[in-house]
């Protein structure tokens, strides 16, 4: 086993839910993808269940718990879309330190779709009208519809970008 004594392992296993993924992997918040991978490899050397077959069952259970969380941390942080969600969650002060993988992938997918098409029915409707206005070359109407879409979804980056581009075109 690596560097941790059984008592330390047990303590770490107990406080898992209080550690965020960066703390668990001992990687800085801004770590690059390669640095995240190296941190994962290093953590795996410390907490690999294979390395503890000779230890007593309770310690083994602790290591298994830590190892599972290390894997989860890596699975989130190596994926830029999941990592962005996770970073936002940590920044917002959310107490939950875990992100479920399938759930977060779905959220990320939905979010990118929402940014593309709008996240509210009204936003989507006005945005879609703006798009069809543009297809017909009716720029003024498109701008009005984009402005309407933005009143329902202030700050939608895709809407704003399109609006800025249209105004510049005029």
């Amino acid at each position: 086993m690596g560097t941790l004594a059984p008592a330390e392992l047990r303590a770490l296993a107990r406080m898992l839910d209080d550690l965020d993924y960066y703390e668990l992997l001992e990687a800085p918040r801004g770590a690059s993808g390669a640095a995240i991978r190296d941190a994962y490899h290093a953590a795996s050397r410390r907490f690999h269940p294979d390395a503890c077959r000779h230890l007593d069952p309770e310690v083994r259970a602790s290591i298994e718990r830590i190892a599972k969380r290390v894997t989860e941390a890596y699975s989130v942080l190596r994926d830029p879309r999941r990592r962005r969600l996770y970073d936002e969650r940590i920044a917002s002060g959310c107490a939950e330190r875990r992100l479920q993988l399938v759930e977060s992938a779905a959220v990320a997918t939905q979010r990118s779709r929402e940014e593309r098409e709008g996240r509210t029915p009204q936003g989507r409707r006005f945005f879609a009208q703006a798009v069809s206005d543009l297809a017909r070359g009716e720029t003024a109407s498109a701008i009005r519809n984009l402005q309407m879409a933005l009143t329902f979804e202030p700050g939608n980056p895709v809407f704003e970008e399109r609006l800025v581009a249209l105004r510049a075109r005029r």
Binding site: L85, E96, R119, F152
Partner: peptide, 19 residues
């Protein structure tokens, strides 16, 4: 539908990817 903020996962709920 009218809320701009969207925090699905903080509550432990999940989203299914159904288009």
């Amino acid at each position: 539908p009218l809320s701009a903020s969207h925090e699905p996962s903080a509550s432990g709920r999940f989203e299914i990817e159904l288009d």
